[in-house]
Design a protein around this nucleic acid. Structure first.
Lengths: 334, 334
DNA sequence: TTGTAAGCGTTATCAC
DNA sequence: GTGATAACGCTTACAA
């Protein structure tokens, strides 16, 4: 690996002049600067980011913590993060936590020793304890879709507008003349579930429709939850004509169960999901859903982080936590 | 950020003693070592990986280059890589290339300046030019499913056994008494396609069945290719009773088209894919396929890289490129 | 405009 | 056993 000193020797100048020249400092003669740059290129020089970081105190690296990158939702978000980071000369250190406290701690420790300038955390649920550890890194932190609503001094959250998305879904169903609409919940205690359900009730109220408790059934965010939910709903004296599901995985469980029971979709039952996971377009029938702009959320999170890292601590005044809009994707399940 | 010197001051020793104590060197009195370690913990010390790297010459970081992490296949592989890396105290620097030469170069440059100890590349196709740039990093490189069969001095490839997987698929269909079996190809020039097709022909030959050119139709690795392939096959005087597809995306295109044309699957046409992408289990009917052990391939690639990084250049003798076995997953499309 | 020297946080080589 | 001291590759005062 050739260094700044090698170039200095080859160009017959001091290494500090080389350092200046390579960073286009005005403090160096234009001619020698070009000469030095030419030599550097010719010798195949690449600056050592770590050495630089050691003196500047900034690593130009951000840590990205995920439960698992194998989650397609997470992967798309991370792609948005990485693309933006790359555009701004930042590198991304990926760290999986597997939602296991032990690995979570290891991840934080690693990011600390790497001296990352900021951290983005994408996990459906961020434990309070864990969050406090992340904050102890002393660098800005941006959470994505944090369902626990915690945030601390350095911590910001980018999230989808669950209420707006829920209204979009309900408006769609109501416009299709559905009047008996069910809601299948997600995992307990997720604020996103509360918000989507809130929109469900709100939409009904606004149309003067009654909100019937029997039409709200528990799911768990996975297909098997959707399956059980559909069975419960079909057991009602007066089953719904449409279902708004907490998320796509739940809706997919519903879809499969409906097919097994020969319930025609959307004729007998319309189904709307939430998330727009890649699967949604490929199930049968293709699922109508509320898309979360995953890539954009990643971009936005990284953009915020760039601001925060630049500004240092945002002198007293906290930025607001951005909320992005969901988008109705009409397919064939409604 | 507190340093080794801060601890030295607090513990009343020199910083070199602290350095030794923290790495459990035998060259330091057991009592003072414990005292120092206690102080370090109390002060919340975390070693600076970059400073360490500067002197040791090893960063304990590996670069992972992907076209896009949003590809579920890639994401699973990366999860395997990351998990293994973490277990061995290595961090993962993720770098997306988007298959764009410009970003590819930027990615390599970045990994170079980070002084990563090794690189793993997951892209369906690795250009010769690009590969030579990666190799110029001077660190071991492991490719995953490199379809171009190139490899250089530092370069190894982990790949799935396409031939064995293809035989698995064909054996399955032949066991189900299918005698008229078609093959839908992938993108041109991928060695994986050649190998899978080779297995197709081999399996037929072994049973003494004729290999009919009209039963081999071009796809492109995507659903629309599968769609066109099915249309072509159904136009034959004597259509096949089963199809082995280059990959799952192709098979999914076939499945959708079959439904539109009311072709019953598997009764009228059996379909087998390759890859076992997450979608495969969720399409209708769920797709029989040959699973690539993605997570394990990631683990294996990282394991190899660990060896290579430890050994330095494997003195003259090249390791062989590992080939992992595919696994038949029988679902409802056959 | 350029060079010298100090320092970033480590590890490693010496003496003591 | 321990402590100076140099070195890793870089940036940045401070001098010249």
């Amino acid at each position: 690996m050739i260094s700044i000193k090698d170039i200095a020797r080859a160009a017959g100048v001091s290494h500090s002049t080389v350092s200046r020249a390579l960073r286009d400092s005005a403090l160096v003669n234009a001619v020698t600067r070009q000469r030095i740059q030419a030599v550097a290129i010719e010798m195949g020089y690449t600056p050592d980011a770590q050495a630089r970081s050691l003196v500047t105190g900034r690593s130009r690296a951000v840590g990205v913590v995920v439960a698992t990158i194998a989650d397609p939702f997470v992967a798309e978000v991370v792609q948005g993060v990485e693309t933006t980071a790359q555009q701004h000369g930042y590198s991304v250190v990926l760290s999986g936590s597997g939602a296991e406290p032990e690995r979570e701690m290891a991840a934080v420790q690693m990011l600390r020793s790497k001296r990352v300038d900021g951290v983005i955390v994408t996990a459906s649920r961020i434990g309070a304890l864990y969050l406090s550890h992340v904050e102890r890194l002393g660098v800005p932190v941006v959470l994505i879709n944090n369902h626990n609503e915690q945030s601390g001094h350095y911590t910001y959250t980018v999230s989808v507008d669950n209420h707006q998305g829920g209204l979009l879904a309900m408006d769609h169903l109501l416009t299709l003349e559905h009047r008996r609409i069910a809601y299948v919940t997600g995992p307990e205690d997720h604020s996103s579930d509360m918000e989507r359900m809130g929109a469900y009730r709100r939409a009904l109220e606004e149309r003067g429709l009654p909100w019937e408790p029997e039409l709200v059934v528990r799911g768990n965010g996975w297909p098997d939850g959707g399956r059980r939910a559909l069975e419960a709903l079909m057991g009602l004296v007066e089953p719904p004509t449409a279902v708004f599901c907490y998320n796509d995985m739940t809706a997919i469980g519903l879809l499969r169960t409906a097919r097994e029971r020969s319930i025609r979709i959307p004729e007998s039952l319309a189904v709307v999901g939430f998330d727009d996971i890649p699967l949604a377009a490929y199930v049968d029938p293709p699922l109508t859903t509320i898309a979360q702009p995953k890539f954009e959320m990643g971009q936005l999170a990284m953009g915020m982080l760039l601001n925060l890292m630049q500004a240092g601590t945002p002198a007293g005044e906290r930025l607001s936590n951005p909320v992005v809009q969901g988008q109705l994707i009409v397919r064939e399940s409604t």
